[in-house]
Amino acid sequence: MASATKPHSRPLSPHLQVYRLPLTAILSITHRITGIGLSLGLLLLTWWLVAGAYGQGPYETFQTVLTSWFGQLVLFGFSVALYFHLCNGIRHLFWDAGKGFEIGATQRANLIVLAAATVLTVLTWLLAI
């Protein structure tokens, strides 16, 4: 037990609201958030495939929505989430194999994940437009 004269001698666990998360932790929670986003994106995939089965009219309705500015914005967000989740997921598989747990390697991988996701997103949209 700490003595009453030195009340602050023990380390306090950081409170989430005042603690600046390390980049690795930000990427970790982003992996989860993008996973939820991609799951919602599966609804878009469902709409596309079902519209294709219903015929030309429903398919063109889907195309009109998707090529509108709002549809393109959703699609862009989906592509960002997809590439981030893909790249960070691959680094998770390395972790699962027991590799890359040193602080230096983790910080390097953070930057590789962010750079790869950015390059893939930009490249995809350059090819799409």
Binding site: L42, L43, L45, T46, L49, V50, G52, A53
Partner: peptide
Amino acid sequence: LCAALAALCIVSVLIVAFG
């Protein structure tokens, strides 16, 4: 929900593929 939507997607693909 995931199982139902997956089934819906697969049936939709098959309808187009065999249609």
